[in-house]
């Protein structure tokens, strides 16, 4: 009697867990579909001709692979040049951001000093203030850069160069750098203190300890920060268009691609504009997708092990 009862319970349990796996699978597939949907729309439509857009029998799958869009967009975006410029800018900026935020984050994590909590509140403050609010003063300060009174009056024009990015990255005040400082601080706080004490006893100074002992162990957090920094810088249109509005970098070129085509063709339809934009976006995100596929393992591991956790 008791045994039959147990068997029935196990059976019910099995059915219930199988049922749950099924539901879970459906939910996850559904969410994945929603996430991938923009890509599912973009990629086929980049291969379509304008007439295919009106053809009701053409849904998602283009009738022929129409490479012409890629040729047009490739030329009008000046893709090779823009790609190279974007890559240079993004690598320089995200590497500096990574170095600076790691350095600063370590300082917050391990040393007590006067004004520490106030300064850390400032880090959080930089995250809360929308960049739109300081956009105009930043623009003007870099346009007429006097190094805050040190250079003679008209100042120099730093717009169009890397300097605005480099200066803000070096000082941990670039795009969402507060978040990176926060991530690094959390990670260093979670590392055992014994590591550094051993290094200090061996006579290493704080910088040597930081470079030799802490950095090699901080790889997962650094990969996470680097990926974030790289991706956000690559995607960034806001600061890039303010600091380097005329530069041939990908976000700026992508934004203007349809307009550029229109200038030569005089008129383009909404459909064709959209096809061009989608083609441009595919070209724009392709490098990111490749980078993400290569780094995703480290990225996900890194996030799990560093708590971005408070």
């Amino acid at each position: 009697m008791a045994q039959g009862d147990l068997k029935r319970k196990m059976f019910v349990g099995k059915v219930a867990s199988g049922f749950w796996s099924l539901i879970r699978g459906v939910i996850i597939l559904g969410i994945c579909y929603v996430i991938l949907y923009p890509l599912i729309v973009k990629i086929p439509s980049s291969f379509m001709r304008e007439v295919d857009m009106f053809d009701k029998t053409v849904q998602f799958v283009p009738r022929v692979l129409h490479w012409e869009n890629y040729k047009v967009v490739w030329e009008h975006m000046k893709y090779p040049t823009a790609f190279w410029n974007s890559l240079k800018l993004t690598l320089v900026v995200s590497t500096i951001q990574l170095a600076a935020c790691t350095f600063i984050g370590y300082g917050f994590a391990r040393f007590k000093f006067w004004g520490q909590s106030v300064l850390f509140a400032a880090v959080v403050f930089t995250l809360v203030v929308p960049p739109q609010m300081i956009m105009i003063p930043l623009y003007l300060n870099f346009r007429y850069f006097t190094f805050f009174g040190l250079l003679p009056e008209p100042g120099i024009n730093l717009l169009g160069s890397y300097w605005p990015f480099v200066l803000t990255a070096l000082t941990g005040t670039g795009l969402r750098n507060g978040l990176f400082i926060y991530i690094m601080r959390q990670f260093f706080r979670g590392m055992p203190k014994g590591l550094e004490e051993a290094a200090y006893i061996d006579g290493a100074g704080p910088i040597r300890t930081f470079l030799r002992v802490m950095l090699p162990n901080a790889k997962p957090a650094m990969i996470t920060v680097f990926l974030f920094a790289f991706v956000w810088q690559w995607n960034d249109y806001f600061f890039t268009s303010i600091y380097m509005g005329n530069a041939e970098v990908l976000p700026v070129m992508l934004e203007g691609v349809a307009f550029d085509v229109m200038k030569t063709a005089n008129y383009i339809s909404d459909n064709y504009r959209s096809i061009l934009n989608n083609t441009g976006m595919v070209l724009f995100i392709a490098p990111l997708l490749i980078l993400y596929t290569v780094l995703q393992r480290y990225f996900i591991e890194g996030v799990e092990r560093t708590g971005i956790v408070g």
Partner: peptide, 22 residues
């Protein structure tokens, strides 16, 4: 304390020049 200030000094400078001032 001095080491801590040394490590966080870049941010302190950047915060004043590129954030608080703007």
């Amino acid at each position: 304390a001095l080491t801590g200030v040394f490590f966080t000094l870049p941010f302190a400078i950047g915060f004043v020049l590129f954030f608080l001032y703007p």
